[in-house]
Structures are given as structure tokens and as C-alpha cells.
Design a protein around this nucleic acid. Structure first.
Lengths: 231, 231
DNA sequence: TGAAGAACATGATACAGATCAATAAATATT
DNA sequence: AATATTTATTGATCTGTATCATGTTCTTCA
């Protein structure tokens, strides 16, 4: 019997690796010759919402947040570890503007791929184009699922969901150091910092998680999943 | 001076037309030979979340809702008029399952394009692949923007936003007959039917809109936009 | 045509989560 | 090391929206 797709707010792309494997040696060389490797310091902005996108960025190492902002507030769309691409939506012809900003949580090494070269590769290599399509489909499904989860879960469920995601998909460990402030956890879950704090405290007293400053530890994964599913 | 991108919850795809224009006569013939035109009656289901996607669907005429559902509730992701595609995310290799359901608000005529043929066209025609990428980018931006709008606006703003979208983008008229029930307006805005009714009544007494049964009329567009922006 | 079920409407109440306020702790700055 | 600034925490209160209850108006179809 097949399990229903879980409604969680996190699904990282699995297809990024496949993407560049489709390139011929020649194409790979073209790519290499048209990219710059840049090191960013913790706290630096990687791209700014509204600016012209000249590059697609590949995260070699580090941790990044992708977010949208306005006067009214901020929404963190994704937290991305190494192995992911930033700025794919800027591939849109005639409108290659970043629709979100990106920020380095940790020191990061990025490969900046000239967007014209990226587009050229799409046009000349169908396998590559197909993999980009796969990536965009995954992104789309991920965003829709996260959106749906937001409308269905309330505060406890969202926090539980987010913690599960951080543990399972991003850090791939039960214990991890989280470089997000409470305010950012709020922007990631659509709550206020105060609410985030209260819910985390509750989880702590209930021994579902352990928190020591920025060190988070999942103590009762089953319980947390349950809260995520039904909270 | 350039205007900031508005944070609304509605942006339909503009690139669908461009998509099929890239095909050669031969490819177009291949497409024609591998599609079925099907008429659906008002109220029929066009595709069901979780089922295998054998086709990409093009809406020739009619009005469709795209939605996700669970025991906990439903979220209407999009309301799509003629000229749009359904099921693009099913292009994902090895996982061509519909992640949402679609339903006909009105009698609809659809072209069902065999997904294998669609994929073949992507692989053999780079221009076509590029246009599909454009479509997916637009979709992604639309979903993210709508998601962001949801986290920033509250009830009045969401309803105003939704009405503006229906008027400007979907019906392209100030007066239109809306085939959505109040319950569905609720599923589209993430509210309860009762709240939707109260807010619509308020708009009506404030002479921002007129409602006669299912006929909606935008009376004060400026005011409505203002509520959408700051509500 | 009339009964049954939806959809619509409105009022009363409850409550989740925001807002406001006031420390405490941690971090940055001089 | 001392001061300033941000971040974290806790409590008290407020409020937007859901929930519940009840009645009315539309649809549907037997």
C-alpha cells in the first residue's frame, strides 16, 4: 500500500547532481571557463531581490537562506545547504530579475555561473534542459506543498514540521547547531518570535527536543512527527 | 522609476502561447496525432491528486480549479481560464504523479497531450524546452509570490487581493459571474466560509463591490487595491 | 411540486497567536 | 573592561478569525 505524500514544508532538490552530469566534456569546459568561484563571509548577502540576475549560483559549501521581504515583513522561502542552486527562476526570458534575496548563514563557497552560458547550455543540450525542467518541477512541488502545509497546520505543527525538516533534510543529524535566530525561525514558520520561543520551550519541557543555546537535539522523533502531522 | 513587484496572489502564465509556436510543422503534427480533445461537463474532475499522470492538459475553453486536499482541508492553488496548461509538474522524471486535483467550474474543452510525446518534444526541440522552462519559472514565481502574500496579508487584504485577481486576470472585466461558492472562496483565501461572507458583506455595504447572487461587480477598484496592499 | 439537502447569512462565543511591556542574557563596540 | 545593542525570555493583555448555533434562502431531484 502506498503512503500518501506527507504534507511537510521541506523537500530539497535531489536532481541538482544529475543536472551537470548531462554535460559533454566540451560543455563542461565552457561552463568552467565561464564561472567564478567566490567565497562569501557569514552574514553577507548573496543576491538582492529586485536586482538583475547575471548568474545562477551553485552552493559548494555553507548554508544559505532564500527570502522575500517587504515593509510588512519577511518570509524565508528556503534554507539551502551545499549542493543546491540559487536563482533558477531568473532563467525566465526577458525578466531575469531575482525575485528573492539570499544570505549566507555560514561562510559559503559559491560557483557563479554566467546566466547566458547557462541558457546556452539549455539550448544546446536537451538532456541538460530536461534536468533543469526536473529541478523546476521539484521546486514547484516543494513550494506548493509547503504552502499547503502552512494553510493546514497551526503553530505547533509548523514548528515541529520545521524542526523535522532541519534535522532530516538539511543537517541530516538528530543534533545540530542552528545558525538561525528566533526571529528567523519566526520568519521561516510565519509566526512571531515570541510564539516560536513559547513553543520551543514547551517542546523542551515535554522532552521532545533539547535546546542548549543554538544546539538543537531531537529527542522524540516520533512525537515530533505526530505533532507535525496533527498539530 | 521602476515599481516594486506587487505582492499579490495571482499571476497567470503568459508564455503558454509561445510554447507551441516553437514547434516545427512535423512536430506539431506529432502533437496533433497524439492528443485527444475531450469535453468535460461542469462539475467533473479533470485529474485526481495522487494518480499517475499520463497527459499534460491544455484548457481550450472553460474554467478550472487546481487544488490540494487532505482530511484537514483543501487549498485551491489556482483558478485557471482557457489558454493554460494543467499538470506540468508531472513532467518530473520517475515521479509523474499529479500533485493536485483539477475540477471543471464550467463545461470545459481540454486537449490531452500524451506526456511521453510532450517529453519527447522537450528532448528534441530546444526552443520548446526553453519555453517549458519559462512556464515553470513563471509558475514558481507565481506560487512563491502568492505564498508570501498569504503570510503578509490578513483576511480583508486576501479577499480584496483575490477579487482584484479574478477581475483583472481571470475574467478581465469589472463585472463577472463567479462560479465559486463561498466555501470555495474560503479555500482559495485560506479563511472560513463565514469569514468570507462577513468580509464580502462589509465590502458591499462600503460600496467597494456589488454582489447580486453570483454576479460580482468591482465598484471602487482603487479602494480595493488599497485594501489588498495594506490589509 | 414539494421535500431534502446545499449554500448563504448573521449573531454569540472561544481561543490561538499577536501585540505590548519589562527584564535578562548574549553579543558587539569602544 | 565597560558600555551599548541586539537577541532571548516571560508575563499580561488584546484581537482577528475560527467555531458553534440557528435561521433563511436557494438547488436539486424524487
Amino acid at each position: 500500500m502506498k503512503k500518501e505524500h506527507t504534507v511537510n514544508s521541506c523537500t530539497l532538490n535531489t536532481a541538482v547532481e544529475n543536472c551537470f552530469q548531462t554535460l559533454t566534456d566540451e560543455e563542461y569546459l565552457l561552463l568552467e571557463n565561464n564561472l567564478v568561484v567566490v567565497n562569501y563571509k557569514k552574514g553577507e548577502m548573496l543576491c538582492k531581490q529586485g536586482t538583475l540576475a547575471s548568474h545562477i549560483m551553485y552552493i559548494c559549501s555553507g548554508l544559505v537562506k532564500i527570502y522575500m521581504e517587504r515593509d510588512s515583513g519577511t518570509l524565508i522561502l528556503k534554507v539551502l545547504p551545499a549542493g543546491n542552486l540559487i536563482g533558477l527562476t531568473a532563467l525566465l526570458d526577458n525578466n531575469n530579475v531575482f525575485r528573492y534575496s539570499a544570505y549566507a548563514y555560514q561562510d559559503c563557497k559559491l560557483r557563479l555561473i554566467d546566466i547566458r552560458v547557462f541558457k546556452q547550455l539549455i539550448k544546446q543540450n536537451n538532456q541538460f534542459a530536461n534536468q533543469v525542467i526536473n529541478l523546476l518541477c521539484e521546486n514547484q512541488i516543494q513550494t506548493q506543498t509547503r504552502f499547503f502545509a502552512f494553510t493546514q497546520k497551526q503553530s505547533f505543527g509548523r514548528i515541529a514540521d520545521t524542526l523535522m525538516c532541519l534535522s532530516n533534510n538539511i543537517f541530516k543529524m538528530d543534533e545540530f547547531e542552528l545558525p538561525l535566530s528566533r526571529k528567523e525561525l519566526a520568519e521561516l514558520t510565519g509566526l512571531t518570535p515570541e510564539s516560536v520561543i513559547r513553543i520551543l520551550s514547551k517542546f523542551k519541557t515535554d522532552k521532545v527536543i533539547g535546546i542548549e543555546g543554538k544546539i538543537f537535539k531531537i529527542l522524540d522523533k516520533e512525537k515530533l512527527q505526530q505533532i507535525s502531522d496533527y498539530g
